[in-house]
């Protein structure tokens, strides 16, 4: 019994310590984001790494998701003769929910892992210490450019993913479900409101911050050795994914509960 209590207590203290460490890290990152110097070359390189190179994976995921969504809604709608809602539900479902969440998860898998592995390797090989001795704050040089790049590019990816997802639904709707192509497009657009699109983009920005912060945080606290880098990478992806899903619920609650 004493052993169990001690174990529970130790776990609780470790959790508090972890949350404190993460909070201090986030405060340091946000204060550094607002003060110069800014490393523009590192920022543009991060834009390419996070945004441009994630485009294929987000595009392919969105296309197939849009297509599958069209098939599912058609099959479900057929039970009560509501097949005509397919275009509007695909559009609303993609821009409000599936575009941001799936886009966020795909970018988390690709980017959070690579950030954590890159920064973790730098930590293990003393490159982070070298940065400090060269009078350069590692937070400013490594974390801030990635955070700002993710904050700006993930909403763009979400926007592009939404469009490709709707296109996927359109292709399936017209070729497999025999919708008229003009009517499909008109119905897709007519029931879509500006706030549907904006809420998805805001979610994308929030998910971008989560992805960059988790990748950098776990990279910076990486333990020595290959195992440490592997652990950091895994933790970054898992925590980013879980936080994206949790944040998605709370943002949806905040945007649409009323």
């Amino acid at each position: 019994m004493i052993g169990f209590t001690a174990y529970t207590g130790r776990m609780f203290l470790n959790l508090c310590s972890f949350i404190g460490e993460l909070a201090i890290f986030c405060i340091r990152v946000f204060t550094n984001t607002l003060t110069p110097p800014f490393f523009m070359r590192a920022f543009f390189s991060s834009v390419v790494q996070i945004g441009w190179l994630s485009l294929p994976v987000v595009g392919i995921t969105s296309f197939f998701t849009g297509g599958a969504l069209a098939l599912q809604i058609y099959a479900g709608g057929a039970r009560f003769n509501a097949e005509e809602v397919v275009p509007s539900i695909v559009a609303i479902g993609m821009v409000r929910e599936l575009g941001p969440v799936l886009g966020g998860l795909m970018v988390a898998a690709r980017v959070a892992s690579s950030i954590a592995a890159e920064i973790g390797t730098m930590k293990v090989t003393e490159q982070i210490d070298a940065l400090s001795t060269l009078s350069t704050d590692p937070i400013k040089y490594l974390v801030v450019p990635r955070l700002v790049a993710a904050f700006l590019t993930v909403p763009l990816l979400v926007g592009i993913g939404d469009s490709i997802g709707i296109l996927g639904g359109y292709v399936v709707g017209v070729t497999r479900l025999e919708f008229n192509n003009t009517i499909y497009l008109i119905n897709s657009i007519n029931y879509l409101e500006l706030w549907d699109i904006l809420s998805g983009l805001v979610k994308g920005a929030a998910f971008g911050c989560i992805i960059a912060l988790m990748g950098c945080f776990f990279g910076m606290r990486c333990e020595k050795g290959a195992r440490g880098v592997g652990q950091a990478t895994k933790s970054a992806v898992v925590s980013a994914s879980v936080l994206i899903l949790a944040a998605n619920y709370f943002l949806t609650e905040a945007f649409f509960s009323s």
């Binding site: 390797t121 730098m122 090989t125 003393e126 490159q127 210490d129 070298a130």
Partner: peptide, 9 residues
């Protein structure tokens, strides 16, 4: 001078 060089890859 770091043990492994610590050059930026």
């Amino acid at each position: 001078l770091f043990q492994g060089g610590a050059l930026f890859d």
